[in-house]
Structures are given as C-alpha cells and as structure tokens.
C-alpha cells in the first residue's frame, strides 16, 4: 500500500482548446467595448473585467491603460457587464445569431 493515495490526473484543457469545442460565427465587429476609455485609465485600479471572464477575453497591460478585448473568444456569459464596478462595459448581442452556438449547453 502506498502511503499517499495518488490522485488521478484529470484532463484540464487550455482555454484555447476549450474554446475550440464551441462553434463560433464571427460577427465581424466587436459586440463588446468600454463606454468611456478615460474611466478605465483614470479611475479603475482593480481591473475586475479580467479575472471574472471565463474565456480570457479581457487583457490590460497596467492600470493606466484601456483593456484590450478579444471579442471572438466571448462566450456571451455577461459576467463582465455586471462585474465592472464603474458600469463601463458596453455589451450588445452579436447580430442575427452570430457569436457562439452551443451544441449541448
């Protein structure tokens, strides 16, 4: 008997591989944005839009910059819209059925 029962490896894919499992139709334009860039650059020190996103859409170089948005990763979960403490995320649905299409959900 081993002293420490071993925990089996489970497969945790990278975010890229995970996003590959979802069908995506690019609307061409970003359905996401920041409403007022200066709110990000001048007021926001916490960058809450980054850690809450399940799809690694939001990135921000430092607390003086406006986040970049990889909108084509977006799973349309809406977390960023609620999470931004300055209500500074502009959020629309991708047009006419574009964006993610789930098979199972």
């Amino acid at each position: 008997m081993s002293v420490q029962p071993s925990v089996p490896e489970v497969q945790n894919d990278s975010i890229e591989d995970r996003l590959y499992t979802v069908k995506y139709d690019d609307p061409g334009d970003s359905h996401l944005g920041v409403k007022v860039p200066s709110v990000c650059t001048d007021s926001c020190e916490t960058t809450d839009c980054v850690p809450i996103c399940p799809a690694d859409v939001w990135h921000r170089a430092d607390t003086d910059s406006v986040p970049t948005i990889a909108y084509e990763n977006c799973l349309e979960c809406s977390s960023c819209r609620f999470a931004c403490p300055y209500d500074n995320v502009s959020w629309e649905y991708p047009t006419t059925g574009s964006g993610v299409t789930y098979k199972h959900g």
Binding site: V7, P8, V10, N12, D13, R18, L19, T21, L75, H104
Partner: peptide
C-alpha cells in the same frame, strides 16, 4: 473549475474524460 475537477474526491470520477464542450453563463 480546474481545481474542482482535480480535487482528490472528484478526480477519480472524471479520470480519462475528454471535454466535449466548454460553456459559461451568469
């Protein structure tokens, strides 16, 4: 999600599983 799936009490249930779909919602 990764940490939950890797918990010693959870991982044995999911050993050998492959991701078919990853989804998110509030």
């Amino acid at each position: 999600l990764n940490l939950f799936k890797s918990h010693p009490a959870v991982a044995p249930l999911l050993r050998g599983a492959r991701t078919v779909e990853y989804t998110a919602k509030t």
